[in-house]
Design a protein around this nucleic acid. Structure first.
Lengths: 192, 192
DNA sequence: TTAGTTGTGTACCTATCGGTATGAAACTAG
DNA sequence: CTAGTTTCATACCGATAGGTACACAACTAA
């Protein structure tokens, strides 16, 4: 088995640095120089380890979903439909207006990367979004505690939409406290 | 009074072309070449007539608010608070998922232009958004038909948030019909 | 020690970015 | 017609974008 010179950096923590940069400055607003500086490596190392900018972003997006965005999957395990929705809304507020992370949501930001070089990235984000909403719909179909007039698919779409709105508000600079109030009001309107 | 060579283009319709391009491809995703091609003029003419890219965008944003985005101001003239909110939600759906315009909302898109050169543009969009929500809050303070448990400021923020969510969904490719259903469900939840 | 393999650092590539210098063209006022 | 003024078209500017060639360093296996 081949040996070779060992890496001078940790791939996972380098991905975390890249995540922070993409999250804060967007796909199009982030240059390779921004990335290599933040990751502490230089371009050939980046390309050897992660492919090109697009592929790096795809890896970063996956890591985002597993890490900060993981609350969306966790919420589906809540015992009641009501709690699922509550955790999703509160989780969106905490994620997008958290103190130690950039404002907004990487996935929502990336939908708005619509320049010519960002086509693949935008599609990646849209695919992830669709999958998330489909999972929520299936979970809500199992719930028995929600007001009977709600169609699960429609409710899933609305919760997703409100979550998107929260991300935009956070990206536009709203504080965590304000967003929490907005989220609570939405929950009261939705679930009584 | 000075004469000089007359313009070979109409400034207002050139602004409309620029609006379409910025709306569809974002501030950062739009190059000067994209703009001059769409506007049918060349760079020196663009700079002479509209300043630089930032200033052009500011003029485009103003035109957007007067034109396609004008429904937000019109809605405030509706006779009841309920109708104000209805017109805002339905208007957001029609604007962001309209057939003859790019998907999404220029103002929401621009909040997500967070590269180093887009700082001014982002601030412009945020300023406009704040002003719009403040106007809505003042209008809702005048309303007497809304459920009494609603604080006008909180309701204005929530309506704004839902409107933002609709814009994101449209940018991510949802159809007008789906968005209309989402909007109607939101209105039922909010206003009964 | 030596061959083979893999990562690192520098220096560079082409394309495009936003923006401009310059001179000819098209107009008005006298 | 001429002088003055404004716009238009071409050609160009320095800076930076994403991406890579190449030589060297650091490791494993024999």
């Amino acid at each position: 088995m081949p040996g070779g010179r060992p890496r001078s950096f940790d791939a996972d923590s380098a991905l975390d640095r890249a995540l922070e940069v993409f999250w804060r400055h967007g796909y199009e607003g982030t240059s390779l120089t921004d990335l290599t500086t933040a990751m502490g490596i230089n371009k050939p190392s980046l390309y050897a380890a992660f492919g090109n900018k697009e592929e790096l972003f795809a890896k970063v997006l996956a890591r985002y979903l597993d890490g900060p965005g993981g609350y969306t999957a966790d919420a589906l395990d809540a015992p009641t439909g009501r709690e699922v929705v509550e955790q999703l809304i509160h989780g969106a507020v905490d994620l997008t207006a958290g103190e130690n992370t950039p404002p907004g949501c990487l996935c929502v930001n990336s939908v708005h990367a619509c320049g010519p070089d960002a086509h693949t990235v935008r599609q990646d984000a849209i695919t992830v979004r669709r999958a998330g909403e489909a999972a929520l719909r299936r979970r809500l179909e199992q719930a028995t505690d929600l007001p009977s007039h709600y169609d699960p698919a429609a409710l899933a779409a609305l919760v997703h939409t409100i979550s998107d709105g929260i991300a935009v508000q956070a990206a536009a600079g709203r504080s965590h406290d304000e967003l929490r109030q907005i989220g609570d009001l939405a929950l009261r309107a939705l679930l009584g």
